[in-house]
């Protein structure tokens, strides 16, 4: 599994570097159209070929990486920012009204797949990258609330937490000073998983037109545009798909590796 972890870090870094470098440099202008050059197969001038407008696919992929990573990262941010405090609160007031309310709200959100949330939001507000972030982010909230609550509940029974209570620390201070640092591992691993799911979800949403709108490049929309072209020039569909697979695979492998490294107990079962 060591090899997997290494490969995961490598692939994730590649996506990140591609996204960051695209701000200062791309092999060609990703928006420059050249109809005479359309649907060219990969060559020295166009590493991943050109699309139906003659745009350089490699450059579009690099800029598209920005959209994917930003949407998924912000969605994880929303999930953590709302879910973690809710989970901490629920665990601190275990079995109480707040705990019950948080858990029931979680169950309710779980009944709405992120695509269905996106459909609801776009039906009213129209499609955009921001709405995609919201849809995926809302879906992430119960995930983080559940992980946080589960991790925190097991900590509340430990002696050093009791000692802190005896010392007169309040629920909020204990949650922040003792519980949160000790469940950080769990949150990092879950964050990586949700990050990779977010990239898949963003690709799906922009593929069906519910995500980033033109001219913002996105991997999912490149695939949607490639669909009618795929029989003429398969590379138009193959490269954006490979970019998604490589990034998601990288994050998944990294998440698995992190879990093994941070929680030795799980190593035995795998």
């Amino acid at each position: 599994m060591r090899i997997g972890f290494g490969l995961g870090i490598l692939l994730s870094l590649a996506a990140l570097v591609a996204a960051l470098v695209s701000f200062v440099w791309t092999p060609a202008d990703p928006t420059a159209m050249a109809i005479a050059q359309r649907l060219q197969p990969p060559s020295a001038a166009h590493w991943a070929g050109t699309d139906h407008f003659g745009r350089d696919i490699a450059s579009m992929l690099m800029v598209g990486a920005r959209t994917s990573l930003a949407v998924a990262l912000l969605a994880v941010g929303i999930g953590m920012a709302v879910g973690v405090p809710l989970g901490l609160l629920a665990a601190a007031r275990r079995g109480g009204l707040i705990d019950e309310a948080v858990m029931r709200m979680n169950d309710l959100i779980f009944a709405f797949p992120s695509l269905v949330i996106a459909i609801l939001i776009t039906a009213v507000f129209g499609p955009s990258a921001v709405n995609a972030i919201l849809a995926i982010g809302i879906f992430n909230i119960p995930v983080f609330a559940r992980v946080t609550r589960g991790g925190a509940l097991s900590l509340w029974t430990l002696d050093y937490i009791r000692a802190a209570r005896v010392a007169g620390k309040g629920m909020a201070r204990i949650s922040l000073e003792h519980i949160l640092p000790n469940i950080a591992n769990l949150l990092i691993v879950q964050g990586t998983i949700q990050f990779s799911l977010g990239i898949l979800a963003e690709a799906g949403l922009s593929y069906v037109g519910l995500g980033a709108q033109p001219p913002t490049p996105s991997w999912g929309r490149m695939l949607a545009e490639a669909q009618t072209m795929v029989t003429l020039a398969p590379h138009v569909a193959i490269f954006p798909g490979l970019a998604i697979v490589a990034t998601v695979l990288g994050l998944n492998l990294m998440g698995d590796g992190l879990r093994d490294a941070l929680d030795p107990r799980l190593r035995r079962a795998r």
């Binding site: 898949l200 690709a203 695939l223 798909g241």
Partner: peptide, 14 residues
């Protein structure tokens, strides 16, 4: 691991 990482709509196109 690869199966989990492949978007189903892309797999559908292939």
């Amino acid at each position: 691991q690869i199966g989990i990482s492949v978007p189903n709509f892309w797999f559908a196109m292939l």
